[in-house]
Write a protein that binds this DNA or RNA. Structure first.
Lengths: 241, 241, 241, 241
DNA sequence: ACCGACGGGACGCCCCGTTGCT
DNA sequence: AGCAACGGGGCGTCCCGTCGGT
């Protein structure tokens, strides 16, 4: 039940630094390469055998270093996980920043919504192998990742909420809906929808799900049809620099 | 980093069966009481130190039982977890069955939706302490709980889907929405909303969230206002025995 | 290395008392039959898997009773062993008594010696399957079997020693030999010789070894040829009642 | 009944390797010292509480080492025993080799016999504490030590047998004795005599027993008096290089 | 920097001897 | 009397994080 693994057949050559190599190594420091190799190996193993079922020795072996060397660069097994999750979170937050920074005034707010959904989905698909690791990290007591994850999500839908609030003042949102609550709840569908998605999903499938999710969000909040959506420049002048 | 625990101060008297007790103990056999005590202890510990950080010896001690006895009733540490999750899942599925079985013909379908959301939320709130355990179980490789969880969810919203489909034939649903996909996606909001909920939520808070979630689901799919919702007997004659 | 056993194929029907049998059982009490069955089973298993490798549960199963029932009749696993060894020792001591009691005055003392060697050998051959158990018992701390075994041996060769001492006064023994020491040392050859003996030894082989052992003992102590051996009535008048 | 022990009061400081010791420790590597400490501790405990009554944890504690470390060097509890027995056997076989290699041509064959008996006795006395362990090892199923022990003994008395055979061709042995059988049987007296020996035997006692045992062997096989024993160079020219 | 060995501790198994219910 | 369950404890395995020597 515990999922004993056999990684012996894994042929990934994550790190093949020659031990007695020439001095002219190049610019990439040894350290970086080792750290990177460990992270790549851990990412691979945390996905398939899973975090709990992956001994540090397996990570070390796959990374082509000894177990003790891993501990030279990471204080903990969990700190390897944390590094992976940190990278994931950082990249995710960048999406929100990017979305807020480059708003085309000519786009409708429906299109903004649609773009956000697609970017969020693509990010998750791109990092699908990391999800089990992220979930483990979030369950860890006192790790703070649960909060970090929520913060990252909030960074995303805070922006949505500001759009919706602006729209509300234009009278095109449903008065019986609590916009802040609705934004968060609806946003969470993105995450959940991915579990129904085939890992090798085609672009069409992703686009279709994106369409549906955007429509659901739209109809739940707005009273007008998507094709009547106002433009960003009309609704959000303050957000456009 | 791993969350070492100290349960020595836990004063729960989970199992204080007196050894030389009177014969007229009641109907619960010794066996059941031991199994129950272990499950109660495990449920408590899997919540707070967490599954990975809880040694079987701690469960045994808290249950007032020896480690060997635990292994007399459970083959594995994981099988304790499985039993807890199984009970959780079974109870959850019963909700769906109950909802489908007792439909008041006089209720509107909005009210059916509302009732479903509330029951689902209450079940989750009632078993909130079990969620970490359930999540760990779902992450376990080859345990099948991920699938079981999805099946349980589907049992719930399959019923919703049948309502929505019937409503579609009456022309009150949005034509641009894929009802099956939407039902699942919208249903997932319930789960996600609970993470924002204070564990000691008041009835009012729960009711408010229930209202919001029901409204979001409604507006996302239906074109008419909730108070215009048709009655169950008009839409679902086939579901009423 | 520990010799895990599989007694599942053992078809010995050591104890097939029917549980719901008629009341007219006969005179053999249930107890005796159960005790006997356990002893037979233990004797069988202590030989082949060995004492340490035989769980009480295996003994019980082979005896056709439950493990707890075994503990109704024997306080200990070791007390089963002790009972077996006790029977062995008791039977062994009887040989010495018998030998001392029925001395044919017409026999030569060489023939007495020969008869003793043969009886001792036959006893050991007859109980060969018990030897491992006896050895284990003798190794047990504070069990007293080591001493009991030596006492039993001494009962045997004390009698020899009295013959030798009587012979010494007739001047037919080697003056440089300590008779008491020699008797014990030479007697020990019997035990040792059995380890070289094929378990399925023919009568001829046993007789041959008996001859050799008797000769060795004789020559080591006596200065005269075996066929010049005096008669018992001439040497041991006091031993003949 | 099983001989529970309490080794808590044992103050043996078997292994007090200082953790932060100077580099110039000596030649014994850390490894060797740990293995050695474990063997010394096991030897001590296998003697007194006995093999079966000695948990590995006790061995570890007495060796000043953790239980896991013991398992780093020994696959099994039994393999510790095997190592002890192996050392014992190896040392024992060396005696036979030594005896055969250094024969003083001027010695009488009686003296050869005498020297053999003494060396065999001294070896056993020196390793008296190991005997219980050796006996346990020999009783273990499929361990092969019983056979190894017999082989070691045979290495010893094969050499004796070759002397006796040579003597036979000189007509000084008893014609009614089977020399091969006799050699083995008589040799076994050495072992048996030790059980009568006080552990703290004086040199005189040992010498006396040696004398007696040699005489017994001699008289049992040879027809001439010990002081008429021929010299090695006369009887065994082929054995002298 | 790398590594072997180590202390510590949990896991799942197996067995012994006891106890209390039937 | 018979038995299921239990407390206790050892075994061998595995893994984590540390440490000291090369």
């Amino acid at each position: 039940m515990d999922g004993r693994r056999d990684t012996s057949s894994v042929v990934l050559a994550v790190n093949h630094r020659s031990k007695g190599r020439a001095a002219t190594e190049g610019t990439d420091s040894e350290q970086e390469s080792t750290v990177h190799a460990v992270l790549v190996a851990a990412r691979y193993l945390f996905h398939s055998p899973g975090y709990a079922s992956t001994p540090v020795s397996d990570i070390a072996r796959l990374a082509g270093v000894s177990r003790a060397t891993v501990y030279n660069h990471f204080s903990d097994k969990s700190s390897i996980l944390n590094q992976l999750v940190r990278d994931y979170m950082t990249g995710y937050e960048k999406i929100a920043i990017h979305l807020r920074s480059f708003i085309d005034p000519e786009e409708s707010i429906y299109e903004l919504l649609h773009k956000m959904v697609r970017d969020a989905m693509l990010w998750r698909i791109e990092n699908a192998d990391l999800r089990p690791a992220v979930e483990v990290a979030m369950q860890m007591p006192d790790s703070g990742w649960r909060e970090a994850d929520e913060a990252a999500d909030r960074a995303m839908y805070d922006w949505l909420a500001s759009i919706h609030h602006a729209a509300r003042s234009r009278g095109i949102t449903r008065p019986d809906i609590d916009i802040d609550f609705a934004t968060g709840a609806l946003y969470s569908m993105i995450e959940a929808s991915l579990s129904t998605l085939n890992p090798a999903a085609t672009t069409e499938e992703v686009e279709m799900i994106t369409d549906q999710l955007t429509l659901l969000q739209w109809h739940a909040i707005y009273t007008i049809a998507p094709d009547k959506s106002p433009l960003a420049e009309d609704v959000l002048p303050s957000l456009l620099k």
